[in-house]
Computed example of a mutant assay.
Amino acid sequence: MGFGIKLKVWGDYACFTRPEMKVERVSYDVITPSAARGILEAIHWKPAIRWVVDRIHVLNPIIFENIRRNEVESKASPRKEAIYAAEERQQRASMVLRNVAYIIEAHFEMTDRQGAEDSPEKHYNIFLRRARQGQCFHRPYFGTREFPVSFELIEDSEALPESPLQGTTDLGYMLYDQDFRLNDKGEVQEITPYFFRAQMVDGRISIPGPLEVFR
């Protein structure tokens, strides 16, 4: 295992969309491992490292709220470089989470793309410095960009706050991550989703390793 970190993240709203919902967005009960990894990568990521989420602590009660949001019908692509929002705007209902807060426990591993100047200590210290100063490459978000994330580093000497969610809760099958396979032109050719059975015990979810998930 590589160097471990603990990061507290929170925000007013979140939407970790269930992939089986095709039209209206419906969020998972809690943040997914892939969304948590995306937050860490927004703070510090290089090809030399790969973030692995170990545990997620849910700090607030799970509250759903039904809202309506304006979305566009299509996505930008090399074939469609411009989107005219006024012509493609659609109003859709979304079941989102309100007043969310989590602690992400994670570590990073070195990849085969590391160079001579890369070392675990270097990237660990870079992440600590950036997290302490509130720096990020882009503002992390909870599922969609209109739900920004606030974050702060939890130092090793700090005790983790206790979750109000006690007991064991079966959260069902949850998205673990997605594998993107590219063609010779660098375009996404195939997307393979991976899932795991999420169990929350006293507000804590242990994330399995990549060999323990399924598609």
Rank of each mutant, 00 (worst) to 15 (best):
M1I: 08
G2Q: 04
F3D: 02
K6L: 07
K8S: 02
Y13N: 01
Y13L: 08
C15F: 03
P19V: 13
P19G: 10
M21P: 00
V26Q: 09
V26K: 13
V26F: 11
S27N: 04
S27G: 09
S27C: 09
Y28P: 01
I31V: 09
T32C: 08
T32I: 05
A35G: 03
I39H: 03
E41N: 07
E41I: 05
W45N: 04
K46M: 07
A48C: 14
A48Q: 08
I49Y: 07
I49W: 07
I49E: 04
V53G: 05
H57R: 11
H57K: 06
V58S: 09
L59H: 06
N60R: 14
P61A: 08
I62P: 06
I67T: 05
N70E: 04
S74C: 10
S74E: 15
K75S: 10
P78R: 13
K80I: 12
K80Y: 12
I83Y: 12
I83D: 09
Y84V: 10
A85D: 12
E87N: 05
Q91T: 11
A93C: 07
V96Q: 09
L97S: 00
R98C: 01
V100H: 06
A101D: 05
I104S: 01
I104V: 07
F108C: 01
F108V: 02
R113K: 15
R113W: 14
Q114K: 14
G115T: 15
A116V: 13
P120G: 06
E121D: 14
K122F: 06
H123G: 02
H123E: 03
Y124F: 09
N125I: 00
N125E: 03
F127K: 07
R129Q: 09
R130N: 01
A131C: 05
G134D: 02
F137C: 03
F142M: 06
G143T: 00
T144L: 08
E146M: 09
P148R: 03
S150C: 11
E152D: 03
L153T: 00
L153F: 04
I154A: 02
I154H: 05
E155W: 03
D156F: 04
S157A: 06
E158P: 00
P161G: 10
P161N: 12
E162Q: 15
E162V: 15
S163K: 04
L165A: 12
T168F: 11
M174I: 08
L175F: 11
D179V: 11
R181T: 13
L182D: 08
N183P: 13
K185F: 14
V188P: 13
Q189R: 15
E190G: 03
T192D: 09
T192M: 15
F196M: 11
A198M: 13
A198R: 05
A198G: 04
Q199N: 05
F214S: 15
R215P: 14
R215F: 15
